[in-house]
């Protein structure tokens, strides 16, 4: 599903965020990406979502060489990925329903299909009753679940989460992680960047450790 071949990323100004990273994730696998702040976790996820471009090396997503993808391919690549952010990135002037529906509207789904799929996604994250609520009236954990519903509503084959539990207390964090496990169990590839070692050490998934832009055990995920 994801393959990094000797990928390096250098930001303008000379900071090396990633250096010669090799990584392989099979379709349907799940893994955690760990490391200190600034180790390159976010950069690695951004490269997959084409929020940043590789400086050197090759990056494949679902067989497509993203290092060579032209600009117009970017939206199509992003539609294949469900992305979850620490700060949720919801639209606060729209209802929960409209937030979750956004990826479907963008992809041009028909009105009837949108309603059905949005309700299915909200049902999965346990927010079916909150369609008409505005995100600001929800708790942090609920907002994060709206973000997850939005990420999975168009059934992507890959979920990327950047510190999804960063602002949540341990119980809520466990619930969120459990949600990701459920998606993985139906075949979705899941990659979660987190430094919540307490939580992820109790889960049976490989951990990819980044340190100063270098991946210490990239091939560990291939075994999964």
């Amino acid at each position: 599903m994801i393959r990094f071949d000797n990928v390096s990323k250098r930001y303008p100004g000379g900071k090396d965020a990633l250096q010669a990273v090799n990584l392989h994730m099979e379709a349907g696998s799940m893994a955690f990406l760990t490391g200190h702040s600034g180790a390159g976790k976010s950069t690695l996820l951004k490269l997959i979502a084409l929020l940043e471009r590789t400086t050197r090396g090759q990056l494949f997503l679902d067989g497509e060489n993203l290092s060579r993808a032209p600009k117009r391919r970017v939206p199509m690549v992003r539609r294949k990925i469900g992305m979850i952010f620490q700060n949720h990135r919801l639209l606060f002037d729209r209802t929960v329903f409209d937030n979750v529906a956004l990826p479907l509207v963008i992809a041009g789904y028909r009105h009837q299909d949108i309603g059905r799929r949005v309700r299915a996604a909200l049902d999965k994250v346990g927010l079916l009753g909150q369609e008409r609520a505005f995100p600001i009236t929800l708790s942090g954990g609920e907002q994060q679940r709206v973000g997850i519903a939005r990420a999975v509503v168009n059934k992507p084959r890959l979920l990327l989460a950047d510190e999804p539990t960063g602002n949540l207390d341990p119980d809520l964090s466990r619930d969120i992680m459990h949600l990701f496990e459920q998606f993985n169990q139906v075949g979705v590839t899941v990659l979660i960047a987190s430094h919540d070692l307490d939580l992820i050490s109790r889960m049976p998934y490989p951990r990819l450790r980044l340190e100063q832009g270098r991946l210490l055990n990239g091939d560990g995920a291939a075994a999964q």
Partner: peptide, 16 residues
């Protein structure tokens, strides 16, 4: 700005 960024994040084309 925020709305534009978010829609770009989840795969909106520039036409959209």
């Amino acid at each position: 700005r925020e709305e534009i960024e978010i829609t770009k994040l989840i795969g909106a084309t520039s036409g959209f």
